[in-house]
Amino acid sequence: MPNTVPSWLSGALKGTGPGDGRLTVARLADERTLGRGGFALTSPAFGDGEALDPCFTADEEDAVAPPLEWSAPPPGTQELALVVEDADAGEEPVCHWLVWGLAGQRGKLLEGEVPPRVGKNAHRNSEWLLPEPPPEDEAHRYVFQLFALDLPLTLMPGASREDLVKTMENHVVAAAVLTGKYKRQPEDAGEGAWDEDDFV
């Protein structure tokens, strides 16, 4: 898949990075479906392009996934699915969260709430993968991508990102994106807290 970032997406993302063109939204959405009918994704915990609180990251004990809220999707939506990826981890975005089984209507996920169905993240765990970028890096962008689908998904919990993406292809009627940023401070990276091969 080429890493060219379509213009309709670059205008919606906060900042640019090597993985933008390979985000799931670049593969599944287009200019017509992004924000269709005012479909929008927000969070009461951070604004679009703003920093994530450490309580949602690997730098704080008992960290959880952030709360999310979304407006009503277009008529005919059967289900919503959420993909969260680190666009700045390299040429291939790192998957932090796969969620589906969300009702095709206005709704929300509370802070730390367990979603209906969750797939495997980049560490092959079925949970919110806590952001843990290298301390020397500039802030990484975690792109929350919400998809309105015209059919209910039959995937079982624990499916992979590729399984989810293949199932959603040609069924996205609207999409919305929300970007949260996170930069670790050197003192956050305590000795033994991370392995250089595990940055996400």
Rank of each mutant, 00 (worst) to 15 (best):
W97S: 03
E85V: 09
G90N: 04
A189R: 00
M1Q: 15
A72P: 01
D163R: 10
L155R: 04
P18H: 06
V83M: 05
G112T: 04
P66L: 03
L9M: 06
P75C: 07
W194R: 09
G190C: 01
V172F: 00
P116N: 07
R22Q: 11
Q78W: 00
G49D: 09
D150Q: 12
L110H: 11
L28C: 08
H123S: 15
R141P: 00
P135N: 11
W194A: 15
K183R: 15
P116W: 02
P74L: 13
L102K: 02
E127R: 13
L41R: 04
W70I: 06
D48I: 06
A174S: 07
Q185Y: 12
G90Q: 02
F56M: 11
F39D: 03
G104N: 01
P44Y: 03
G107M: 04
P157N: 10
A40L: 14
D53V: 04
G107C: 04
T57C: 13
E169L: 10
T33I: 11
P134S: 10
L178Y: 15
P134A: 11
P157C: 12
E187A: 13
L82P: 02
G104C: 01
V5C: 07
W8F: 14
L178T: 07
D188L: 03
F199C: 08
E60Y: 03
V83A: 03
T167G: 05
L130A: 13
C55T: 15
R32V: 14
L130Q: 14
A193E: 12
D48W: 14
R36E: 13
W100I: 05
W128G: 07
E91K: 10
N121M: 05
D195L: 15
D59N: 14
K108L: 08
P115S: 08
E61I: 06
V118I: 15
P74G: 09
T57R: 09
P73Q: 09
E69S: 14
G35D: 05
A175Y: 03
L146A: 00
V143Y: 04
E169V: 05
T4M: 10
L52C: 10
V25K: 04
N3H: 13
A122T: 11
C95I: 09
G104A: 02
E91Y: 09
S71D: 13
G15V: 08
S10M: 13
Q78C: 08
G104P: 00
Q78V: 00
P93K: 02
H123L: 14
A72W: 08
D59K: 05
W194T: 11
A159Y: 07
V172W: 05
L155G: 02
E196R: 08
L149F: 02
F39T: 09
D163I: 00
R22T: 07
T77N: 00
H171T: 03
L149A: 05
A122P: 04
Q105D: 13
L9E: 03
T16N: 11
M156T: 13
T57V: 12
T57F: 06
K14F: 12
G21Y: 02
V200A: 08
E50A: 14
G190I: 10
E138P: 11
S7D: 15
P75N: 14
D88P: 03
D62Y: 12
A51K: 15
P74R: 13
R22L: 12
V64Y: 06
G112P: 08
D188E: 14
D195Q: 10
